[in-house]
């Protein structure tokens, strides 16, 4: 065990760095996707509702691993048929796309539920003063919705962090991929996977502890 840490420690940390980069990038994009599709879903326009529902259903209905294969292998193949022979995606690009699409669909549902948890009277009062729908959303409804969303968002962050491991299948050099390499080289599966597991656990537990603290701070006073 100590031997593995001595010879592979820096590589494990580098792989953890890759995992975190992939996770953070995906979360950022997922927040934007989530907000857009949540707003489509709560709008009073049927066309918008339809687009929102189709996206959420489609992405949630496909396993992440299939989505990753589709984007990483399928998309370039499709582009080739269309004539774009040079089209290539890096594992980071494809991974970020797959993970943020996936996480974005769940985020859309979380944000939609958050918006709908705000009493209708808040929107009505804002509209009755002459504010537009967008102004009312931004200034009144969303700030209140965010509070109820925070626990679910943290939960989704943790799921997404763990889901990065699935992207080892497209060769992205993240933590789980590193585990495969190490156990292949050393034949010490037990030790290797124990170490990899512990690294995930330490990161996730400390993140969720920090998030809990933020949550508590936000809930002081108001509401």
């Amino acid at each position: 065990m100590i031997q593995i840490i001595q010879s592979y420690g820096t590589m494990i940390l580098a792989a953890l760095g890759q995992t975190l980069i992939l996770c953070l990038l995906s979360l950022l994009v997922a927040m934007v996707i989530g907000l857009i599709f949540a707003l489509l879903n709560v709008s009073h326009n049927r066309g918008c509702n339809f687009i929102g529902t189709v996206y959420v259903d489609a992405v949630r209905g496909v396993p992440l691993i299939v989505l990753a294969y589709f984007i990483y292998f399928g998309l370039p193949a499709g582009m080739k048929m269309l004539g774009a022979v040079d089209f290539r995606l890096t594992a980071l690009q494809a991974g970020t796309a797959a993970l943020s699409m996936n996480c974005g669909a769940y985020m859309a549902e979380i944000i939609r539920a958050g918006i709908q948890s705000v009493d209708r009277g808040q929107m009505e009062a804002a509209r009755s003063l002459g504010l537009t729908y967008g102004q009312s959303m931004r200034k009144v409804v969303l700030p209140q919705a965010i509070k109820t969303m925070i626990p679910s968002i943290i939960n989704q962050f943790i799921i997404t962090l763990k889901d990065t491991s699935i992207l080892s299948v497209i060769g992205f050099p993240e933590l789980t991929n590193m585990g495969k390499t190490i156990s292949g080289n050393t034949f010490k599966s037990l030790e290797t996977w124990a170490i990899i597991g512990i690294v995930y656990m330490v990161v996730i537990v400390s993140l969720s502890k920090a998030a809990k603290r933020v949550e508590r701070k936000l809930n002081v006073g108001r509401l």
Partner: peptide, 12 residues
């Protein structure tokens, strides 16, 4: 202007 039964003050 409109005044509502349940006040609807902006809670935030």
């Amino acid at each position: 202007g409109m005044v509502f039964q349940h006040f609807n003050l902006f809670n935030n």
